[in-house]
Design a protein around this nucleic acid. Sequence first.
DNA 1: GCCGATTTGTCCGTATGTATC
DNA 2: CGATACATACGGACAAATCGG
Lengths: 245, 245
Amino acid sequence: MPRQKYTEIYRALKDRIEAGAYPVGQLLPSENTLIAEFDCSRNTVRRAVAGLVRDGYVQTRQGWGVCNIFQPIEPSAYTMGTIESFAETSRRTGQHSATRVVGFSLCTAGEELARRSGFAVGTELFYIQRIHDLDGVPRIFNHNYFRRDCMPGLTARIAAGSIYRYLEEEQGMSIVTSKRTITVERATEEDRKWLELGEYNCLAVLSSQTYNSDGILFEYTQSRHYPGIFRFQDNAVRTPEGRRA
Amino acid sequence: MPRQKYTEIYRALKDRIEAGAYPVGQLLPSENTLIAEFDCSRNTVRRAVAGLVRDGYVQTRQGWGVCNIFQPIEPSAYTMGTIESFAETSRRTGQHSATRVVGFSLCTAGEELARRSGFAVGTELFYIQRIHDLDGVPRIFNHNYFRRDCMPGLTARIAAGSIYRYLEEEQGMSIVTSKRTITVERATEEDRKWLELGEYNCLAVLSSQTYNSDGILFEYTQSRHYPGIFRFQDNAVRTPEGRRA
DNA sequence: GCCGATTTGTCCGTATGTATC
DNA sequence: CGATACATACGGACAAATCGG
C-alpha cells in the first residue's frame, strides 16, 4: 500500500481518465492547475504524469499540454505486459485456473541451457514443469528453472501453488526485473502430450529471465502457450534516449 | 542529436556497461560519485539511471546501490521493443530488405474495423498492403490503415519506401505513442498466397495503434510475421504504481 | 510577422526519509 | 549506532514550443 504522493496523483488521474472525465483527444488540466489541486510541487505532478505517459494513457507536448489518448480496449482472455503471476491474471480475468506439477527435479545447467537461460554452466537448478488449466482446459506448459541456492525448502507442494507468493511473502525476496522474449515455435511431441492444441501446430513462447533484489539471476522460465489465449500488450514511447518507456 | 545532459550520462554509462566495465552483479559508482564525475545535479544522474533501469541494464536498491544486470544476448533475426521501422531494423541486423506494395486503396471504417482499430465508424482511410522481403524471402505481410486527412499526397510510390520517414521528414509529423498487441493467429488463404510459411500454420501478429503529436490516432497496422523470424524483447520492472516501466 | 502569456522540458540545489551495512 | 546509499519531495530558474492577439 504505497502512500507516496506521486502514486496517489497517478491513480487519481488514471481513475478519472478511465471514468471518462476527459474526452479522448482533449487536454488534461495543466501542471499548475494540478499543483494547486494536489498541493504539491511541480516535480511530483510531473512524475505522476510521466507514469501515465509510460502506460499509454496520455501524451504530452511542450507548449501545448497533456492530452488524453485512452480508449477502452476489449477484455482479453489473457493479458500481459506486467509482471503478474498466472494466478493473479486469471483472477483478474475471472477465469477459473488450476496448476498441476508434472515434473520436479534437480539438474545442472549444461552448455545449451546456459546459453538460453543466462545461468553459468554448472549452476544447480530446480527444474519444474507445470501445466496451467484455464476453465478446466490445459493451456500453458511451463518450464521453470530456479537457482537451488536461492530456493531453500522448495517442494513440489509449494510449486503447485504460487511460487511467487512463496518467494515474496515467506522468503521476503522481492522480484525486481524480468527480461522477456516472445517467439513463436513449432509444437513438440511433448507439447501435444500435455496441451490441447487443436489444429494449431505452433505455440506462443514467452521466455523470461528474472532477477531478485540482489541483482542475481535466479529464475529462467519458458512458458509455452496455446495460441488462442495468448495476448501480450505493450506501449512504446519515443524518448530522447532512443528506447521505449 | 539530443544534447541533454541526462541523455549523455545515460549513454556514457550504457556504453561502459556494454563494454564490460562493470562485472555483472557488481555495483556501479554511487550517485555522489557520478555527480562529481559528470559535474551535474543529483536529479540528472537519477534520471539517467532511471533510463538504464527501464531498459534492463541495471537494478537499484535503496541503501545498497546500482547493480549491473546486463548480459549480452545472442543477436536475433528480428528484434523489436522500440518504435522502429522495418528498414531501420533490417539495417541494424544487416539483412537485405525490400518492400513491395501489393494493395493501395481508399476505404471507410466499418463496424468491425472500427472495433479493432479504434477509428470512429466512417473515418476515411488509406488501406495499404505491403510485403516485406528479408534476404529475398517474403516474411512479413503488412496491413496499414492511415487516416486520409493526416496523409496529404500519399501515393503508392511513397508507400514503397519508408512511410515513417515520409511523415517525419517531409510532413514534420512526430510519432509519439504506439500501443501494441501481440497475438498468434491461424494463417489465412491470403497469408499463404503472399508468404512462404513452410510447415507453419500460424503467424505472429503484431497489431498497433499509433498516435501523432496532436494526440490523434492516425494509424492502425496489423503486421503478420513468418513465425521463424519473429522475436519481441521486453523488460518489465515493478514500480510503485503497479505497472511496468 | 512579432510579442507576450501559457505550458511543458531541462537542470539546479536542498532537505528529509528509509534501507543497508 | 553511525556512515552510506538510494527514494521522495520541495522550491526556483531558464529554455523551448505553442497559441492568440
